[in-house]
Design a protein around this nucleic acid. Structure first.
Lengths: 205, 205
DNA sequence: GCCTCCCTCCACCGATCGGTGGAGGCGGGG
DNA sequence: CCCCGCCTCCACCGATCGGTGGAGGGAGGC
């Protein structure tokens, strides 16, 4: 019997997962949580075999909750459910210790089978997610921007000129340009606008 | 007895809505559909009192499907479920004839009550959605960009210079600038980068 | 101690952009 | 028919940006 805790801020999705899982005799949904903090608390109390969790939740995000659960409860595994295959949090969640990452759009049996796999100690990845991962691994430099580069880029996105950005951040205009050029280089881009849109696509902004 | 058709591309969400609705004696889920086209066909076949539909679906988007259903089946009402309260499709769906617009994050009883309201011929709006609507109505100019302005803005977002945009669209550089200036004016903005981020926020891009 | 990375700053240049003030053509609605 | 909105284009200007080639200081790792 696989004891499962379901965590999702959407009542509809929660009900859906429960409905899908509960109709199988080998799976028992023992609890539900509507946000990240509640998920951690319920996991602590119920000690389920498995937590099925949304990535985006109020309170604590899916990856934060995952990290805490994995740290406190070594016997509890985490299976992440996400809406978007391009979600920038995929890596974060897996680094936090998630054992699986499935799309909400996946057919019902794939989700049920994912739950069983993870409960057995295996890993469950949606094909689209797996493709994302290998694509990221293929990219040698995962593009990491420094804190300052992100500061500057955020203000660029807000429509500030280099001079104004300098004033806001209490640095010289030359420094702003220097950060921007660094960021352009890292992103493989030649202008501020594309830098902003790309950073947004990558979930960096 | 309210006969309901549920349309959503996510199996999980479909199961959730069905689970929420089916436990009430006055509601009968008579069918399901996994995309917009199937929703229209099933509605045609089953003639339900109500279609509960996601906005974003493959095949036909929620508002297209809504328009078709409303045109063909005057006895069938449509209740839209969305994930994001800032969804740019709110207006489109309501113009297409939807009788309600609820958030997936809404508590279960609010969704059930919404179904009953719409079946009675009333309108059901989540508070957050209603707030969005009045905010839009308050704004005298809803910011509508022309097709050409959007063409240009999309290429700006891709990092193209005005000259390159001109080449791609087979127009002069001066024309590109003229479209951009128009767009800046409409968006209340003074630079291309902010224009792009704002257009993205507004769901125009 | 040394090396690397990040942050800071400077001067200079050509290219591009933002903005002004026009112009004409073309299609739809009153 | 006339007006209005959209699309197209022109010339010109100052401001800003992208890019080069530096420089120094401070924090952290080996």
């Amino acid at each position: 019997m696989i004891r499962v805790l379901v965590a999702d801020d959407h009542a509809v999705v929660r009900a859906g997962i429960v409905a899908l899982l509960d109709e199988h005799d080998d799976i028992d949904v023992v609890g539900q949580a509507a946000d990240g903090l509640a998920a951690v608390e319920e996991a602590r109390r119920l000690r389920p075999d498995l937590v099925v969790m949304d990535v985006r939740m109020p309170g604590a995000t899916g990856d934060e909750a995952t990290a805490r659960i994995r740290a406190e409860l070594p016997g509890t595994r985490v299976l992440i459910l996400t809406t978007y295959e391009t979600d920038a949090t995929i890596l974060a969640a897996i680094e936090a210790g998630a054992s699986g990452y499935l799309l909400k759009a996946a057919p019902a049996d794939e989700i049920v089978e994912g739950v069983r796999s993870v409960a057995r100690g295996e890993t469950a990845l949606s094909p689209a997610i797996a493709a994302q991962l290998v694509a990221r691994l293929r990219a040698p430099a995962p593009v990491e921007l420094t804190a300052r580069e992100l500061d500057v880029l955020r203000l660029v996105a807000a429509g500030c000129s280099n001079r104004v950005i300098g004033e806001r951040l209490f640095i010289g205009e030359a420094t702003v340009k220097s950060h921007l050029l660094k960021a352009f280089e890292k992103l493989g881009v030649h202008d501020r606008t594309r830098a902003v849109t790309l950073a947004m696509e990558r979930g960096l902004l």
